[in-house]
């Protein structure tokens, strides 16, 4: 059996990107197995440990409580089936190679813009998740206060984001950031817990999942009831008849305003967005901001950025339990 440390994802508290991000999408994490990409998802209950180490304002049991609530938020998404089980406290660090899924604090003062990170070990023959480790950077200020605490990052909110990674979700692009004086970036607004930059300290909004997060987890862990009661949207993004790779596709439900997205992931520009509430959707395509490529794709080669944002010229009906008619969004060069 060959193991590979496949993916590491980080949540930035202050800044990661060099330019503004305005994207809408969830994306699932994948592993290449036998020449094909498979979704990373748990085929069993997630048994996790918590490192038995307190930090200044948070004890290990408080961390475990926040993580348990984070799991519960994901498990509460309707028509999904995913289980989690706290095994116990451990002296093990949240690092790979021990076959244990461990969540804990690590002091990483050199990563002054990183709040937390998740890393996977995956069997690259079967695609099975072997372990996932999550660390929270104890060099950052943390809070477990019920209403949040000004100046400290809410451990449960960041926990929901990291557990989303653990369950197989990548970063969403559903957010807007702006440049700070120190060269970092801050969130202007966002609409997905899985957006890679956190709200500022004191904010607890990311304890609550948004439509984009729910669609993503429904795609990965949806029950047969979910398959019957949600729908998909599919199509192509083209420029001059040629497919566009790496375009962001946004679907906005006309009745609710909920926003869910996806990416064109083939050279033909094909995309599929699943886990959608049935209804009529506005569909929009836009280029990925070049500073964000690394947060979504392992390799930025081939991501086409040379087109202007555009709405599809028809509303798209997403049926219950099926896929709507394939559409083609014909974008124009910038």
């Amino acid at each position: 059996m060959t193991r590979t440390a496949l993916i590491a994802t980080t949540l930035a508290g202050l800044a990661v990107f060099a330019s503004a991000a305005h994207l809408e999408a969830y994306i699932t994490l994948g592993a290449t197995v036998g020449g094909r990409v498979v979704n990373l998802r748990w085929d069993r209950t997630v048994d996790y440990f918590v490192t038995n180490r307190d930090i200044a304002d948070v004890t290990a049991p408080q961390l475990q409580g926040a993580i348990d609530r984070a799991f519960t938020s994901w498990a509460a998404v309707p028509r999904t089936s995913l289980g989690h089980q706290f095994v116990g406290f451990t002296g093990a660090e949240p690092v790979g190679g021990d076959g244990l899924t461990v969540i804990g604090f690590r002091s990483r003062p050199e990563l002054d813009r990183t709040l937390a990170a998740a890393s996977f070990e995956v069997d690259n023959v079967t695609g099975r998740i072997l372990e996932v480790d999550i660390y929270f950077n104890s060099s950052q200020p943390w809070s477990v206060a019920a209403g949040g605490r000004a100046g400290s990052f809410d451990l449960e909110s960041v926990g929901v984001h990291e557990v989303g990674h653990l369950l197989g979700l990548g970063h969403s692009g559903l957010g807007e950031t702006e440049l700070r004086a120190d060269g970092g970036r801050r969130v202007v607004a966002k609409r997905a817990v899985m957006f890679p930059i956190a709200y500022p300290g004191g904010n607890i909004d990311d304890r609550t999942l948004e439509a984009d997060d729910k669609a993503g987890i429904t795609e990965l862990y949806g029950t047969s009831d979910a398959i019957r009661n949600t729908g998909s949207l599919s199509g192509r993004v083209t420029l001059g008849g040629q497919g566009i790779f790496g375009a962001h596709i946004t679907a906005v439900h006309t009745a609710t305003g909920d926003i869910v997205g996806g990416f064109s992931l083939t050279s033909r520009g094909d995309f599929v967005i699943s886990g959608l509430v049935p209804g009529l959707y506005i569909v929009r395509a836009e280029p990925l901001d070049d500073a964000d490529i690394g947060s979504v794709f392992d390799d930025d080669a081939g991501v086409n950025l040379n087109f202007a944002p555009m709405f599809h010229d028809r509303l798209v009906a997403v049926p219950r339990g099926g896929t709507g008619p394939g559409i083609e969004i014909k974008v124009k060069a910038k």
């Binding site: 809408e24 957010g175 969130v187 202007v188 607004a189 609409r191």
Partner: peptide, 21 residues
């Protein structure tokens, strides 16, 4: 009317675009 909105840190809406039906 549907407004595609993000939410800012203070909880206020940030409109991406507006759609009148």
């Amino acid at each position: 009317v549907t407004r595609a909105e993000l939410v800012d840190p203070a909880g206020n809406p940030f409109t991406l675009f507006e759609a009148k039906h």
